Simulated scan of single mutants.
Amino acid sequence: MSESENVNQTETPQPSNGLGALTAHIGRNKIDFALWCTRFATIVFTFNYLIPIFGSGYNMYYKALLANAATSALRLHQRLPQVQLSREFLGKVFIEDSAHYLLYSMIFFYAPPVTWVLLPVFFFALLHISSYSLGLIELLGPNALAVVRMAIGIVEVQSVNLLRTIAFSEIFLFPLLMLSLFSGRATLMTLFVYYRFLTLRYSSRRNPYTRNTFGELRVLVENYAQNPSCPAVIRNLVSKMVALVSRLAPPVITAEQQ
């Protein structure tokens, strides 16, 4: 009796897989699961904005931004759990990528819907939800949800391309907002704050893709301008634009300089 009781005591409390293991994991990692929920909500609301199935597409746009803001706030809390009223702490906040996208959601929440705005929000949610979803599926069993595993595998293989797509969408949103000034869908304040967002993304220590994409675009336009078939007027215009953007680029602070 004593041997069987000891076996039961060692095997019962911690199921290796199945619904019990999943429930236990969620209980131990409430914030991580909350992040999974808000990212999933972002994906669902974006789909419903593009293809209105449940509710108004107009409302889904703002719900997607709200879900992204919730994700960013939770992630920022994970990174900086101890809030301090100091200039140094505020500097630490704006170094965090999650703070950048919290600002991003605030920029566009009070502006008319622009579909392009949801591109980086959607792709970031898709990218970050995939790895955690795979961990949840593993808890259910090695052969659970094979189709979902396959979809997650595709997302993970394309992770670099997704990050580059996000960077391109961040950059090209700025000229799109400039054009939107003429239709009244954006304001000078929106442009000013979004420029600040772009400088934060350019200076990001954890995600260099926006900075690298700026570099790739510079090489691309300079190569085009140096082509003998390029008109002199366009060559001069490109040179002036590259010089202007280079002057506006913020200094990049590396980890060694902290």
Rank of each mutant, 00 (worst) to 15 (best):
T12F: 12
S203F: 00
I26P: 04
S246H: 08
N17M: 10
I95N: 07
P231N: 07
P13A: 07
T165F: 11
I129A: 12
D32A: 14
A64R: 01
R196D: 11
V157Q: 14
P52S: 08
T165N: 07
R79L: 13
V117D: 00
E222Y: 03
M241L: 15
R205Y: 05
V233E: 15
A144L: 04
Y194P: 03
L244E: 14
C37K: 13
M1Y: 09
G27H: 06
N236D: 14
L179F: 10
F123V: 10
M106C: 12
L50G: 04
H25V: 00
Q78H: 07
F54V: 14
L181D: 03
F192W: 13
P231F: 02
M60W: 07
N59W: 07
I166W: 01
L65G: 03
G153M: 04
E3A: 12
R87Q: 15
F47M: 13
W36S: 10
R247L: 12
T210N: 01
M178C: 14
P113A: 04
A243H: 14
T23N: 12
F40H: 13
F182W: 09
T10N: 11
N143H: 10
I171M: 05
I166E: 02
L188M: 13
P228L: 06
A249V: 05
F192H: 14
A99R: 02
G184E: 06
F45R: 14
R206L: 11
V193H: 03
S56F: 04
M1H: 12
K63N: 12
M178I: 15
S72K: 01
L90K: 13
G91P: 01
N227F: 02
L176E: 05
F108K: 03
C230I: 02
A144T: 10
V233R: 12
Y104G: 01
F94G: 04
Y61D: 03
M60E: 14
E170H: 15
N6T: 11
P112H: 08
V245P: 05
V160N: 10
L85A: 14
V93A: 02
N212K: 13
S16E: 13
T254L: 14
L35P: 01
R185I: 05
F197K: 04
P120F: 03
N29V: 05
S56I: 02
F192L: 15
L173E: 00
M106V: 15
T38H: 05
F33S: 07
F192T: 13
N6E: 15
S203M: 11
Q84G: 02
L134S: 09
T213Y: 07
G215Y: 06
V221K: 04
L188C: 10
L145Y: 11
A186R: 01
I234T: 14
P142V: 06
E156T: 11
I234C: 07
E216F: 08
T199K: 15
N68T: 08
L217D: 01
L76I: 01
F33T: 09
V117Q: 01
Y58F: 11
S204L: 05
Y209E: 11
E138G: 09
Q158H: 09
H128N: 12
V44Q: 10
L176Y: 07
M150F: 14
L22K: 04
V238K: 03
L198E: 04
F47R: 10
Y101C: 01
R235C: 04
